[in-house]
Design a protein around this nucleic acid. Structure first.
Lengths: 330, 330
DNA sequence: TAAAAATATGAAACTGATTTCATAAACCAG
DNA sequence: CTGGTTTATGAAATCAGTTTCATATTTTTA
């Protein structure tokens, strides 16, 4: 494996000059630059990133932390980040935290050790207090997290509005018994507070009150959705509509409903969140809240690159709009 | 950021001793080991991977190359790899090649430069001739690739059998006009040869001949599936069944079929591949070939770790069985 | 009890790059 | 023509670890 010394030897110049060519320093004689380039090509030389990082220079790699890569929302998000970063010649390393605090910390250490020049976090497991110190080592952009208090660059969606227009839509359609199902917790520690808030606001405006047993928390998957439906079937007073935290949950609800002869939307209206491919596959097609995933990724990368380039660029807190897509499930 | 020298200073010992503690060398006095460990904890010391790698030691990271992370087959596969590696205390870096040769080469260089100790490739874009030289720098396990000639560790599925039992199932159901749709190419350079072979074998055994205009190549997504259906609709003599390369394609075919009043399976039988979640969501539920994704990931990691641990462990070529799941689309 | 082997530690070399410092040549202004 | 920039290059220090070599101490063996 050729090193910079090999290139120096072959070109008859010093390591310093070779390094300068690699890093496009000014003040290199054209003839020598060409000699170096020729030698690099001849040897198939590739600089060793470990050595570069050790010396403190950047390597055009950014890291992305996702909680679960099998969740289509995140795989699409990380994909859009990757595409966008590639345009600016940045390489992306993806990490799955599996909603595990220690793994998250491990990845944060990659920033500390300069394995990556910057980090995009699409989920947060540890408290901001423990994450914040790592920003000393490189910029961290929060993407899709609805952390409230932190002074940090954030690109997120208007979750509150999403929940609000979804719930409002159900109310406008005449439904009054509206259940709510969330991926996170309900009003605990500010996380997910946004969505809850939109749901509550829509109900309050319509003079409806909140039934706590119609609130389902910590639901994520299709199977979770099926289970929610089963729980609803067992209730004396069943909701006539449900606002869910993701299309996957919604799909599970619908599948289980059909199994049990519950008609959608006559007996139960269902609204999803994300507009994933399954929203158009399931029968009836799913009314859902579309999130602009690509923009979410693009803006995050954009901001991260800005922060990496100039050390004291201002951070922004960007909120992107969501949109109601009415299909057949409501 | 504390370094090994800080730890050495605080514990009153040399860098060498600290390094020995970190790497669990034998012959360290218990008392000194404890002093070092105490100092490390006190400083919140984390070894810098760049420095370690530079000196040539391993860092318990493995890389996984996937073509497209938004494809559920690959996101589930990479997930299972991650889970399995984690059990053995290996960290996983995921890379998306986007079916791009240059990106793939970039990731192979990570192996060359010791950024990762080993590599699992779930797709290969370059010829094996260009990949092979990289095995000098660390083991490469091919996972899910059906490369024929290469002498390399491979964990794959019995693709030929999958295509064979799928096609055979259609024949047994009485269909004779069977189209075929593949993600790769048809019989070009040995890639994908397996599946094609199974399809051809089943047809031949039944005395059916191959209609070349019923072969669709390079199809991957739901939209591709819709397009395939549109092409079939435009044909004078339409197939009465189709074997597709993935559940996504199959879903697209079915969606477009329904739009156009083509009944599934009466007018057109559809069979998928993968058994992804959408297979059970789409109506009618999809007959498909189940692939043991988790085992695929587990075996790959298992073999990679074996190869990394002992330099001259024998490589294996493992083939896992696939299984026909009959639902309602055939 | 002396020699050999095992245990334990540190100084210094080394990994592959970048950067500082020193220096020299070419160019320019006064 | 002389002194100050600008351009151009290399030697050596540096980054944070690991490993070799040397050496000292303790334990085992003959």
């Amino acid at each position: 494996m050729p090193t910079i010394s090999d290139v120096a030897k072959l070109s008859g110049l010093s390591k310093a000059t070779v390094s300068r060519v690699i890093n496009k320093h000014p003040y290199i004689a054209k003839e020598k630059r060409e000699r170096v380039e020729q030698a690099m090509k001849e040897l198939g030389y590739v600089p060793n990133p470990s050595a570069r990082r050790l010396r403190g220079s950047t390597t055009s790699t950014i890291g992305v932390i996702v909680p679960r890569i099998v969740n289509p929302f995140f795989s699409y998000l990380v994909n859009s980040i990757e595409q966008e970063a590639y345009k600016s010649n940045y390489q992306v390393l993806m990490f799955q935290s599996n909603e595990n605090k220690d793994k998250e910390l491990y990845f944060l250490n990659l920033l500390k050790n300069r394995q990556v020049d910057g980090l995009i976090m699409t989920s947060i497991e540890n408290d901001w207090d423990v994450i914040q110190p790592y920003t000393e080592f490189g910029p961290i952009v929060l993407c899709n997290e609805y952390l409230m208090h932190s002074k940090a660059p954030i690109v997120r969606l208007d979750q509150a509005k999403g929940a609000y227009i979804g719930t409002k839509h159900l109310i406008d359609k005449g439904y009054t018994k509206i259940a709510y199902c969330t991926g996170g917790l309900f009003a605990e520690d500010g996380k997910d507070k946004d969505r809850n808030h939109g749901y509550q606001q829509a109900l309050t405006e319509a003079g409806l009150s909140i039934q706590t047993n119609w609130i389902f928390i910590n639901k994520h998957t299709i199977d979770d959705g099926k289970e929610v439906m089963r729980q609803m079937l067992a209730m004396e007073e069943r909701p006539s509509a449900i606002f869910t935290g993701s299309d996957e949950i919604a799909a599970g609800v619908i599948m289980e409903a059909k199994e049990n002869g519950v008609r959608i939307p006559e007996d139960l209206a269902v609204i999803g969140f994300d507009d994933q491919p399954i929203a158009e596959i399931i029968e009836p097609k799913l009314t859902t809240i579309r999130q602009p995933i690509n923009e979410l990724g693009e803006k995050s990368v954009e901001q991260l690159i800005a922060l990496m380039s100039s050390k004291d660029a201002d951070y922004k807190q960007i909120e992107l709009p969501v949109e109601l897509l009415v299909r057949k499930s409501t």
